[in-house]
Simulated assay, not measured.
Amino acid sequence: MSQAAAGATVDDEKSLLEKAVRLFVDATPPVGAPIEDWRTGFEALAANFEIAADAEIEEIEADGVPGRLVRAPGADRDQVIIHFHSGGYVQGSSLSYRNFAYRLSQVTGQTVVVPDYRLAPENPYPAAVEDAKTVYGWALRTWSHDRIVISGDSAGGGLAVATLLAIRDSGLPKPAAAFAISPLLDLAGESPSMQECAESDALIDRNMVVEMGKVYIGDIDPHEHPYCSPLWGEHHDLPPLLLLASNSEVLRDDSVRLADSVRAAGGSAELSLPEGMVHIWTLFPFLPQAAKSLDVIGGFVKSHAGS
């Protein structure tokens, strides 16, 4: 954990959390605004996060899917995390995730690959899942399956879990483990926390989930398409999972419901539900809880995919 995170007071943490919410709100246009406004806002938000001088960053092409490979000093070249970025399937990029990928590489000691999967509305469902599966097939030619971890946050977290289902259903060897941060797993927006946390979540509500989801999936029923809404799929034969969500965000119970279903199917699913965090808080390098949660992720990854 960073020294700043360890030494932060309660007032400091509150002030920093308010800063994160403010940055998020300022970057987020109203539902229905042009997609370019969403994309520009998100990139401007991420531009606040400094890229470390010692970061090793390489543009890659994974069988036609572009992205970036990021390593912190000392990271293992023989182990990789494939991380799918957030953005509601319409925004976000490997460029905006360089800072996060570097911190993830630091805490796990692994190489991180952030794919630029195709975005809606130009490339609607199932384009993102197709790209994610392509990237995994590409990774299997360089890394052993038991040295690959799949992860994502928000919509990228949903994509990560959808990719696990697609890998299993295709008969490919499964990765060593997977984790997801504030994952968007139900585009029908039916988790109880949609109502229970409506007042405590400053950023997301059911209308945003459903309406932005329609940009990605159109008029299809998410209940019938687990590769876009993985809570509605079968959850047997998945690798060990770690699911993180704020206890006060509307997406909280997407993680709770998935964890319950994975366990009922005989699998392993750990839950981490820190109090009072903003959605995908780990994106913000100045939040003490971001460092704490990344430490949890680091321990999980090392226990399942360590050297």
Rank of each mutant, 00 (worst) to 15 (best):
V90T: 12
S200P: 05
D116F: 08
D237K: 14
V301C: 02
G306L: 13
E59G: 11
E122V: 01
E122A: 14
R71M: 13
A127R: 13
F49R: 05
L23M: 15
P73Q: 12
P30M: 08
I280W: 01
P230R: 15
D63L: 11
Q289C: 07
P115H: 10
P183S: 07
V135D: 02
G87E: 04
G137A: 01
P226D: 15
P239D: 10
T163R: 01
D12T: 13
Q91I: 08
G152A: 09
A177Y: 02
H223Q: 11
W281K: 06
P115F: 03
W143V: 01
M194C: 03
G266T: 12
A132E: 10
L16C: 10
A33Q: 06
E270W: 09
A132V: 07
A180N: 02
F24G: 05
R22N: 11
L45V: 05
A198C: 10
D237I: 12
A55F: 08
L23T: 07
G67I: 03
I150Q: 00
G92P: 03
E234W: 13
I204A: 04
E234C: 09
L119Y: 04
H83N: 09
F42I: 00
N99M: 08
G156L: 04
D37H: 00
G109Q: 14
F286V: 12
L119E: 05
A155K: 10
F84K: 06
E50M: 15
Y97P: 01
I204F: 07
V25T: 13
G306Y: 05
A8T: 13
D76Y: 08
K14W: 11
A101I: 09
E130F: 04
K174Y: 10
A128P: 00
G158Q: 03
G152R: 00
L159K: 02
I167D: 00
N123I: 09
R98W: 09
P126N: 14
S193I: 00
D54M: 15
D131F: 05
S261M: 13
T28N: 03
L258D: 01
L241F: 07
G158W: 06
R39E: 01
Y97F: 12
D63F: 03
D146T: 00
E122L: 14
A202H: 10
G74Q: 06
V25K: 15
L238A: 04
A160K: 03
A72V: 11
P173H: 07
L238H: 00
R141C: 05
V90W: 11
A162E: 00
A160S: 01
L203C: 01
D205S: 02
A259P: 08
V90L: 13
P183I: 04
L251Y: 04
P175S: 15
L238Q: 10
L283Y: 08
E199C: 00
S151D: 04
K292G: 01
L287A: 03
V250P: 07
S261A: 15
W38C: 05
H236P: 09
F300P: 04
A47D: 12
A178W: 05
T282L: 08
V161L: 15
A8H: 14
A155H: 00
T142R: 06
P183A: 10
E211L: 14
L258S: 02
E18Y: 11
A139N: 06
Y227D: 02
